[in-house]
Computed example of a mutant assay.
Amino acid sequence: MAVVEVRELVKEFDGGRVHAIDGVSLAAAAGEYLVLLGPSGCGKTTLLRTIAGLEQPTSGDVLIGGHVVTGLPPRARQIAMVFQSYALYPHKTVLANIVFPLRAAGMDRAERERKARWAAGLLGIEQLLDRKPRQLSGGERQRVALARAMVRDPQVFLLDEPLSNLDAKLRASARDELKRFQQDLGTTTIYVTHDQAEAMGLGDRIAVLNAGRVCQAGPPVDVYDDPADTFVATFIGSPPMNLIPHDGRLVGFRPEHLLPAEVVNGERVTVPLEVDRMEYLSGDRHVYGTVSRIGERTRVVARLPATVDTPIIPGETHSFAVPARRLRFFDSATGQRAAPVRLDG
């Protein structure tokens, strides 16, 4: 296990006209599972590749285990990286793929096979060691790539969207396996994804990136419940956070907190919702409509669980409410989190 830290990291392309990483300072604690989350082009993969030594920063430093490794090649950084493509040798068996880095390092045959069988057993692929990659499913190939990384005894695992080639059902089970795998080994892990479900399910902490900068870093529940800005508020959550203009601010609330007024107790803000349509998804009702009470007319969505059976009729205005403690406030000019204000209602 090792602490991984980047300090004021900058990575420019195209003669300085493109800032893929723009002054990022971030640290992953020893044994932590840190997820880099953001949309395509936000800089998360470039950041991971710079930590790995596959890209050299324009400025700033990378530290692993307290030592500056900026400028060192990947093999000198005691890291192991798993790519989206898995990068398995098609002509080699699973066993040969797993032992390849150990063979390249000069480890004797008996020891490298012992380590390979240990890793395969941990990942449940010991019965596949004599097969070739073309005989494996996507999930099995992913496990082989992880086993090949494990046998190197790295201080840090770097995972670049390793589940993106799997179907939705397999991705859900693979997330569980990845989490257990990391907990069993206790190795510092940095994981890149654009999938918020993966980030929320895997990360001890999430760092949300946009345009080469870290917008917010923290435990998943904190990032979801108390976003630092409107980008985080609307990027995380499905449906995303509702934002309504009000007196120089944006008032935000999650769709699951917008409920029929009769089921909301305590201090609350009422919201007359002009309903135009509904969707039924996995037992929830998504209610879409327009709010005109607070400032201008704004589209919002409410997510009602199956336990709330209040009749909702499209084409009519219904009384909804949000618990006051669930409201979040943002500066309408900068999008940054702002001090709360009291709303009547």
Rank of each mutant, 00 (worst) to 15 (best):
A29S: 14
P340E: 11
F330G: 00
D204H: 02
G266S: 13
T234C: 07
T317S: 11
G121D: 10
L72K: 12
F235K: 00
G345L: 09
S25H: 14
L343N: 06
W118E: 00
P305H: 05
G237H: 12
A306K: 07
E316V: 12
R175L: 09
T290M: 13
A87E: 01
A228V: 07
A338L: 13
A174P: 06
H246R: 08
L209Q: 05
T310E: 04
V263S: 11
V275R: 07
D167C: 12
M200C: 01
L170W: 06
M81P: 02
G218D: 04
S137G: 09
F181L: 01
A172N: 14
I21L: 07
S25Y: 13
G248S: 13
D61K: 10
R148L: 05
R7M: 09
V287W: 05
A87S: 12
T70I: 09
R112N: 09
E161M: 10
G38N: 15
V214E: 08
F181W: 01
L47Q: 03
G237N: 03
D344E: 08
I64Y: 01
K179D: 11
A338E: 08
G203E: 05
S85C: 11
R337A: 04
Y33V: 04
L163W: 00
E296S: 10
R325E: 07
Q142V: 01
S282V: 11
G212Y: 05
A87F: 09
K92P: 12
A30D: 10
H67D: 12
V6C: 07
L26E: 08
M107A: 02
N210Q: 09
I125N: 01
M1I: 15
Y86D: 05
G283P: 14
T93R: 09
D204M: 01
G31Y: 07
L159T: 00
G66A: 14
H257W: 15
L95K: 03
V300K: 01
K169Y: 15
G237D: 04
F320P: 04
N210P: 07
A87N: 01
E8K: 15
A52K: 02
K132P: 10
F253D: 01
C42W: 08
D61P: 14
D195S: 07
F330W: 07
G60F: 02
G186S: 07
I236R: 03
Y280R: 11
T70P: 07
L343W: 06
D225C: 00
V322A: 03
D195L: 08
G60T: 13
R112V: 10
G335T: 06
S137L: 10
E316W: 06
I312A: 03
F231M: 01
V192H: 05
S282P: 03
F157R: 00
G203S: 05
L48V: 03
F100M: 05
L72N: 12
